[in-house]
Amino acid sequence: MADIVTQAAPAKINLALHVTRRREDGYHDLESLIVFADLCDELEASLAGSDSLIISGPFGGKLNAEPNNLVLRAVSAFRARWPELAPRGLALSLTKNLPVAAGIGGGSADAAAALRMLAGLSPVPIAVSDLSDLAAGLGADVPACLLSRPLLARGVGEILSPLQHFPGLFVTLVNPGVAVATADIFRRLRAHDNYPLPALPDPLTRPAQLGLWLAETRNDLEPPAIKLVPEIGIVIEEMAQTAGCILARMSGSGATVFGLFGAEGQAHDAAAQIRRLHPDYWVGTAPLLGAGN
């Protein structure tokens, strides 16, 4: 292998998220349109005698490198599944650029990056289906993050339908710096049997098509999250008022809010406006990764 190998861990955004059923095992069936932004954590690795992890970056202080860290769990799970294909040890370095417990993938994206890295280092190809099965054992969002492209997710997140077409769009993300536990949001969810997502236009190639479709959808986790963290609702209203905003909504279980835009300049202007209103909030803007990624 090269002296150092790298993998990006892009931010995951739930453009729409419907909770359709509470299962007997206590989990929930969901339907979600998921996209990924060109805003990433970064994972680097080099060969070593044993596994180790160093975490740095703007949000590195929010995490620790103990064995239960999702990156190390992903490496351990890969090695247990394919012991003959994994390096003996990896010195890993994670640059944490994205907020933690923010509804944008976070640890799941980092774990997926570790799996992609190990699959790339394997001397023989590993089937995507096998890698996805392993990813599902690490967390509900890890299989989607493994693909990091526009897709529909169903079940608890393990049933994935990648989209063949998706319009070029830009996103502005805002996080108020309040960590939200997913379990707390689900405990406050009033309805567990909401209707599923409407059928997507096919082919989905124009921003206007997506905007009309999104107008018929929701994030069912948004109302309980706003009750828990009122700042989320304030940012949604502020984002919705920015020029050219197609949709302002919370991603995942929060507290990150996204604004969706058809033009890069509009997304940057919205980011600047939110920064003026909330100089202490984390704000990022980037293009969405397309269907070909």
Rank of each mutant, 00 (worst) to 15 (best):
V35N: 11
H268I: 05
P10W: 12
L221M: 09
A255M: 09
S148F: 00
G265I: 06
L92R: 07
A263Y: 07
Q273E: 14
P167A: 09
Y195L: 12
L212T: 06
P196K: 02
A109P: 08
L221K: 06
L15H: 10
L98A: 11
A267K: 10
A136I: 00
A191H: 12
P176K: 05
L94D: 10
V19G: 06
F78C: 06
P10H: 11
N14Y: 05
H278L: 01
E264N: 13
E216T: 11
A80D: 14
G252S: 10
P223A: 06
A77W: 07
A215E: 12
P287K: 00
R116E: 11
A113M: 11
I34E: 08
E66D: 14
L214E: 04
V235M: 15
A112P: 13
H165L: 01
D220S: 04
G103R: 10
L131H: 07
A119N: 01
A101G: 15
T217D: 02
A65M: 04
I13N: 11
V174K: 01
V257W: 09
G26I: 12
D193Y: 02
L121K: 08
Q7F: 04
A225V: 08
K227V: 04
Q266P: 02
H28K: 10
D3V: 10
T20H: 10
A77N: 03
V71Y: 03
I54N: 03
C40W: 10
P67K: 01
L247C: 14
G57Y: 07
Q273D: 07
R206C: 02
L131G: 08
L173K: 06
F166N: 06
F78N: 05
L121W: 03
G60K: 06
E44W: 09
L152W: 03
A272T: 02
G177P: 03
A114K: 05
L121F: 00
T205W: 02
R22F: 10
R116C: 09
A191C: 08
E31Q: 15
G157L: 11
N219K: 07
H268D: 08
E238H: 12
N69I: 00
S148A: 15
W282D: 00
D25H: 04
A270Y: 00
A45F: 01
Q164D: 14
E44T: 14
D38S: 14
N175D: 15
L115K: 07
G89D: 06
S93D: 05
G26P: 09
D130T: 00
R21V: 04
P67I: 00
K227S: 14
A113S: 14
A16N: 03
G120S: 09
D38N: 14
A102R: 13
A135L: 12
A144R: 05
L228C: 02
I226T: 08
A86T: 00
A144F: 13
P125Q: 00
Q241A: 15
G252H: 11
S253T: 14
K62T: 04
I13Q: 09
E222M: 14
F170N: 12
L121E: 07
S251T: 15
R81H: 10
T95G: 02
L204E: 02
D193S: 12
P201M: 01
L260N: 03
H268C: 06
V5D: 05
